[in-house]
């Protein structure tokens, strides 16, 4: 019976990898005594698949500060799961062009909407302050938008009313690389959510009466 063993819970799927022969690639979460660990897996057996899985794993390590451990699983150094952030890290790592070396993102980004440069200032124990440089009437609103985006994308804690410029990884660990990765999408989190919704809705069969085409 079957070749599909127990890989854990699939928490994310890229249905077609644009960089490698349109294969599907899943991110699976496994629980163990060592804490939650992540497995990158494809059911494809096309030539070169193992190399592609290794490259995505290496990109996750570089872009998100996750570690590859002896059992082959990826784990964050804090021992926590950070599932939402890990899903984002996985998606960004699959998108990473294989022809470029992945590099950790800086804690700074140009916010195209306001023209401000948004930065993350690491404080301590996993806390980051969202700051900005430049002139714009929307400074405070953009700071709150970016902080809120980080909270949504990575399940960071954020108190919009009392400290709208502070976000914190609940584990208290300084996930600097991960913060930099999340910062890229944080100014436009609605677009990310729309993209996620659109990707998820592909492949859902509608009755003829519900079809748009």
């Amino acid at each position: 019976m079957g070749e599909t063993g127990n890989l854990g819970s699939r928490i994310e799927l890229v249905p077609m990898d644009g960089h490698f022969r349109d294969i599907s690639i899943g991110l699976y979460k496994q629980e163990s005594a060592a804490g939650p660990g992540y497995l990158i897996h494809t059911y494809s057996s096309k030539d070169g698949v193992a190399g592609r899985m290794d490259a995505i794993g290496a990109a996750m390590v570089r872009l998100g500060g996750i570690q590859k451990e002896a059992d082959g699983l990826l784990r964050f150094p804090c021992g926590k799961g950070h599932e939402r952030a890990c899903r984002r890290l996985f998606i960004e790592s699959v998108k990473q062009s294989p022809s470029e070396d992945p590099e950790a993102r800086p804690l700074e980004i140009l916010d195209k909407k306001s023209g401000l440069t948004m930065t993350l200032a690491p404080l301590s124990e996993g806390v980051f302050r969202v700051e900005c440089q430049g002139e714009s009437e929307s400074r405070e609103r953009r700071i709150a938008t970016v902080a809120g985006g980080l909270a949504k994308l990575g399940d960071l804690t954020w108190s919009q009313d009392s400290e709208p410029d502070l976000v914190r990884f609940p584990c208290g660990h300084d996930h600097t690389e991960l913060a930099g990765l999340l910062l890229i999408r944080a100014p436009n989190v609605r677009a990310v959510l729309r993209e996620e919704e659109s990707t998820a809705s592909r492949g859902v069969l509608a009755a003829p009466s519900q079809q748009k085409s």
């Binding site: 249905p15 077609m16 349109d22 599907s24 592909r202 492949g203 003829p208 079809q211 085409s213």
Partner: peptide, 15 residues
């Protein structure tokens, strides 16, 4: 017919 790709269903162009 719109045959689509691996990750989507083929559909009839009912328009």
């Amino acid at each position: 017919i719109q045959w689509e790709q691996k990750d989507n269903w083929p559909t009839v162009k009912m328009r």
